[in-house]
Design a protein around this nucleic acid. Structure first.
Length: 551
RNA sequence: GGUCCCAUCGUCUAGUCAGGUCAGGACACCAGGUUUUCAUCCUGGGAACAGGGGUUCGAAUCCCCUUGGGAUCACCA
């Protein structure tokens, strides 16, 4: 009997799930499902300083939103569970210590007492001499008595892995192929940190082995680490899993798409505009000072969002949650993400999760890195949105509005709002942007003196503005206020005062009520607004622009 | 800098492993058309095998070099 295939996604819960991580999770999930295997989720929270429960819950939510559910792992809203837990590395310390003891017993682990500063010096020196830094094994020379004395004294220490002698190391990667490295390139890396927790390298191979993971699909930044991992696996007598290293995702400018991009965007803006203190009631001055003191100190997500809002700049979307907020559909993001580094062939590009599971294979993963193209994602979202039935669109738009734009979800005529916006929306958010005039007070509408506005209202032998009184009168007389009667009224007006040219009457009306040249079809727009608001806005607009008449 | 990885239209990619149709599709772009705005939608168009050597009757495809890009070199994962 062949062993069941098991993949895992093992994020470190710092910040949010970003696009690159999401793609890795999707590939892991798809590969497991495509091969009748299992997908495991494990939380790598051995870095106590940076991990948080809040971030962990965020990861669960993001994964769940994408409908990437784990067969095994932390329990969350009905998914997860399993008998190989706990699935949080911070709760597995005893297990790691047990495995560590086996390494000590085999003489393959040793204590090291150098301080971070000392090591830093060594590294600098290595760099200056244009060679790679390797730990010099100084602590390995210490006598057992000295080591014991240091330990008794409570001297800070780490535990290192003693890399065994031998020839070159080769790993066969499913995506990259054979990769060989000289063993001398691997130094005695740290496996237990000064805080008593294992490092990533140690924890990951122990967990993968004990949880029976068969395939490790992860980002290519781990390719070099793989040699450390296979050495550790051999030392502990674990079976070597199958590796697949997938390429990275880049920004359109070629830089690595990373969680730091938001921070970078903010810093650049602040620097370029010589902003020296945070805008009023935005973030605390402590947070600002700490942020400005070093570029290693990132602003936390909430503060970053607030600051961006206060400065009026758009932060790049890089987290799954950013795209959710921006009004993309999860199945579209999943589809598009898959295409960044994998394709099913046969010119197929748009597909659903079922198709993915039917066709996914490691062989078709592309080796080269991909740039993230928002325009294509947007086009995909548009296509998917247009394929939705009107009922479905309405339901999903409502759910989105309830979370991100409650003023729209409370609209009396939500149904009409949805149908009026369906065909012109590329995202759920689009609907709220093109219809933002709906939630404005009649008295708050303003008109930019832009080209399209002037063209519709002021240009021509007979200007749009001059037709306004007739339009207002006609509307006042309309007894039944619905799309048909309004359209009928406008058509009649067009015939009477604009040589049958509907645009000449509809466009001025649109601008008057919406404050700009864009809105849903005019009939729907006016029904949504109601007769009273419509007439109030038409009058205000006429009044506002009448100054041009006098010129 | 050491080590490792990568290289087809502007972008994502098919084609590469088993050399042999004007290098295919999508997004973007450009030009027309439909449309009461916007967004759609329809038609058409330009657009690539990084460079140089080999191997071969024949190379995007196999080999080598150059160039370019990237990852990594932590008591972060």
């Amino acid at each position: 009997m062949t062993t069941k295939i098991k993949t895992r996604f093992a994020p470190s819960p710092t910040g949010h799930l970003h696009i690159g991580g999401a793609r890795t999770a999707i590939y892991c999930w798809a590969f497991a499902k495509a091969n009748d295997g299992e997908f495991l989720l494990r939380i790598e929270d051995t870095d106590q300083k940076r991990s948080s429960d809040q971030a962990t819950t965020g990861f669960f939510n993001d994964l769940k939103w994408l409908n990437i559910l784990w067969d095994e792992g932390p329990e969350f809203e009905g998914t997860g569970g399993g008998d190989k837990g706990p699935y949080y590395q911070s709760q597995r310390l005893d297990i790691y210590k047990e495995q560590l003891q086996r390494l000590f017993d085999a003489g393959m682990a040793y204590y090291a007492f150098e301080t971070a500063e000392e090591l830093g010096e060594e590294r600098k020196k290595a760099r200056a001499e244009k060679r790679a830094y390797r730990y010099n094994r100084a602590s390995l020379e210490l006598s057992p008595e000295t080591v014991q004395r240091y330990l008794d004294e409570g001297k800070p220490h780490v535990i290192r892995f003693k890399v065994p002698d031998g020839g070159p190391l080769t790993v066969t990667d499913c995506v990259v192929g054979d990769v060989t490295v000289e063993r001398s390139e691997v130094d005695d890396f740290v496996i237990f940190k000064g805080d008593g927790f294992p490092t990533y390298h140690f924890a990951v191979i122990v967990d993968d082995a004990l949880m029976n993971v068969t395939h490790i699909i992860r980002g290519q930044e781990h390719l070099n680490n793989t040699f450390k991992h296979i050495l550790l696996q051999e030392a502990l007598g674990f079976e070597r899993p199958i590796f697949a290293h997938i390429s990275l995702i880049f920004n359109p400018d070629g830089s690595k798409m990373s969680k730091r991009d938001k921070d970078k965007a903010l810093r650049k803006y602040v620097r370029d505009n010589n902003i020296e203190s945070p805008p009023e009631t935005c973030i605390s001055s402590d947070a600002w000072a700490n942020w400005q003191s070093s570029k290693d100190n990132q602003l936390d997500t909430d503060d970053a969002t607030k600051l961006a809002l206060a400065l009026g700049i758009e932060l790049p979307e890089i987290n799954v949650d950013d795209f959710k907020q921006a009004g993309y559909m999860p199945e579209v993001l999943l589809n598009y993400l898959c295409l960044l580094g994998w394709s099913p062939g046969n010119d197929v590009e748009q597909f659903d999760a079922d198709f993915l599971v039917e066709t996914f294979s490691l062989e078709r993963i592309v080796k080269s890195p991909a740039k993230f193209d928002r325009a294509k994602l947007l086009a995909f979202n548009l296509d998917a949105l247009q394929k939705l039935s009107s009922e479905e669109f309405e339901a999903r738009l409502l759910a989105w509005c309830q979370e991100y734009a409650p003023e729209f979800s409370e609209l009396d005529k939500f149904s009409l709002f949805a149908s009026a916006n369906h065909e012109r929306s590329k995202t759920f958010k689009d609907a709220t942007i093109t219809s933002s005039f709906l939630i404005e007070d009649d008295e708050a509408v303003t008109w930019p003196e832009s080209k399209p506005v002037k063209k519709a209202l002021l240009k021509g032998e007979v200007s749009g503005l001059s037709r306004m009184p007739a339009i207002i009168t006609a509307f006042k007389e309309l007894e039944v206020w619905n799309a048909e009667t309004i359209d009928g009224c406008l058509h009649a007006l067009a015939d009477e005062i604009a040589d049958g040219n509907l645009g000449k009457v509809a466009q001025p009306v649109r601008i008057a009520v919406a404050g700009g040249p864009v809105s849903p079809p005019i009939g729907d727009t006016l029904v949504l607004l109601g007769k009273e608001s419509t007439i109030t806005r038409l009058k205000r607009c006429e009044n506002y622009f009448s100054k041009y008449y006098e010129l």
